[in-house]
Design a protein around this nucleic acid. Structure first.
Length: 424
RNA sequence: GGAGAGAUGUCCGAGUGGUUUAUGGAGCUGGUCUUGAAAACCAGUGACACCGAAAGGUGCCGGGGGUUCGAAUCCCUCUCUCUCCGCCA
């Protein structure tokens, strides 16, 4: 959520910034409502002041056993007007908030201008894509041939875009998120969280999934609960409506969770394999930072996510998203893309963003500077550390052997009961 | 799911319609005393949001709505917490 004061004082700059991210939004309605709101408030507060004073006067008269009928009658009218104006303010406030909730974040100045992913800027690469002496297979074929991934049974039991993992496949999935959690907790100093997998509407609003993207989420019928699309939602909202002590910052959390996404509008895209599922596992990194340090925190967050891929020996690149490709809530995002031999390209496996105070303002997450300082909004950041299903896909494809077996990355073997290879 | 109790400022905790526009304590800040600290004593300090150029004003006692000239206090409703019962991993 953007600061209403910023829009009020600098509307041209705001609409310019929003235009850069393909968001042609007029702020005229907002500005008109904002002005109306302040006019009504001034009027109604004067009346309330009068009412408060006269009520004291009535109390005094009653104590002295004097007649107050005239004043009471007069205040009856004043109160009726106050009620009317209060209703108006409430109505205008609601409209203003609705507008604010649909405005995306303003991109950071270091974000390149652009309209789509072709305009994203590659920052660095790590690792060499493996040369195969044979034609590498896609992970869904590898997985089915090894009998560790079963898509058709999942389709029978649940539907498309779900998967059964079996045997060492299931073990690999579990090994990966345990490995990732240990890495972030022990090496990178994050505090581990195991969050609820459902949240209420306000939390979804707090991190920016709602109200605009409701069709992307799964809602539990008959309830107000949503299945979380990422652990970012429950973990960031842990501190909703809180004022954090300055000396607690920065705070770093990592959380495993299953993630649920309706993938509305993705029909026909990545229909095979593990890349685009309605349910997948992910280890998420979440940071709360003081504003002046949030961009340093973003860089280390990206490095922490990269470390997962380095330890697993998976070639990847880091790209900086352009203004047009930026997520709704984000001010700046780096994507980590892992090399996927069957695609012959890099595929997104992590997305690391600084939301600045956009989420904090929606969820009301603040901190206090010093003992007497005024509370101000924190900056929130998060990134996948990393998506587990896509990591399985990447391992199967990058570590596949000519005989159809898959070598297990060394760092993962302790988590796999010492197994070195998955074979038929 | 049933029955009951509760939610007040950073914390504890008073307060059932008008000198409460929130009592008292703890805490916090400063001071006295002390070699220093603690204790004691004295003084100060009350969240947060909004409107306003400012002076100042308005709102806020879990959330929302209502009654009233006036609500922390009365009514309705929702959420959460606790106790007991039932059910359950």
């Amino acid at each position: 959520m953007l600061d209403a004061r910023l829009i009020r004082s600098n509307p041209e700059a705001v609409s310019e910034a929003l235009a850069k991210r393909n968001s042609q939004i007029s702020l005229d309605d907002f500005l008109a409502l904002d002005q109306e709101r302040r006019a009504i408030i001034q009027e109604v507060e004067q009346l309330k002041n009068k009412r408060n004073n006269v009520s004291q006067e009535i109390a005094r008269l009653k104590r002295d056993k004097k007649d107050a009928a005239d004043l009471i009658a007069e205040m009856g009218k004043v109160s009726a007007v106050i009620k009317e104006l209060d209703d108006k303010v409430r109505d205008v406030d609601k409209k203003l908030r609705e507008i604010l909730l649909t405005l995306p974040n303003i991109p950071h100045e270091s974000v390149p201008a652009g309209t789509c992913d072709a305009d994203n800027r590659e920052i660095r690469r790590w690792g060499q894509p493996a040369e195969f002496s044979f034609t590498p297979k896609a992970h869904w074929d590898i997985g089915e041939e090894l009998d560790i991934l079963d898509f058709s049974t999942a389709a029978k039991v649940t539907g498309s875009r779900f998967t059964f993992y079996k045997g060492l496949g299931a073990r690999l999935e579990r090994a990966l998120f345990n490995f990732m959690l240990d890495l972030h907790v022990q090496k990178h100093g994050y505090t581990e969280i195991f969050p609820p997998f459902m949240v209420h509407r306000h939390s979804m609003e707090g991190t920016g999934q709602l109200p605009k993207f409701e069709e992307d989420a799964f809602r539990v019928a008959g309830t107000e609960y949503f299945l979380i699309p990422t652990a970012e939602v429950p973990v960031t909202n842990m501190f909703r409506e809180e004022i954090i002590n300055e000396d607690m910052l920065p705070m770093k959390y990592c959380a495993y969770s299953a993630c649920f996404r309706a993938e509305a509008g993705s029909a026909g895209r990545d229909t095979r394999g593990l890349i685009r599922q309605h349910q997948f596992n992910k280890v998420e990194l979440v940071k709360f930072s003081k504003p002046e340090h949030s961009y340093e925190e973003l860089e280390t967050l990206v490095q922490d996510a990269e470390d997962v891929l380095k330890e697993l020996g998976l070639p990847y690149r880091v790209s900086l998203l352009c203004t047009g490709d930026l997520g709704f809530s984000s001010a700046k995002t780096y994507d980590l893309e892992v090399w996927m031999p069957s695609y012959q390209k890099y595929v997104e496996i992590s997305s690391c963003s600084n939301f600045e105070d956009f989420q904090a303002r929606r969820a009301d997450i603040r901190f206090r500077e010093g003992v007497k300082g005024k509370p101000q909004f924190v900056h929130t950041l998060n990134g996948s550390g990393v998506a587990v299903g896509r990591t399985v896909a990447a391992i199967l494809e990058n570590y596949q052997q000519e005989d159809g077996s898959v070598v297990i990355p060394e760092k993962l073997r302790p988590y796999m009961g010492g197994a070195e290879r998955i074979a038929r």
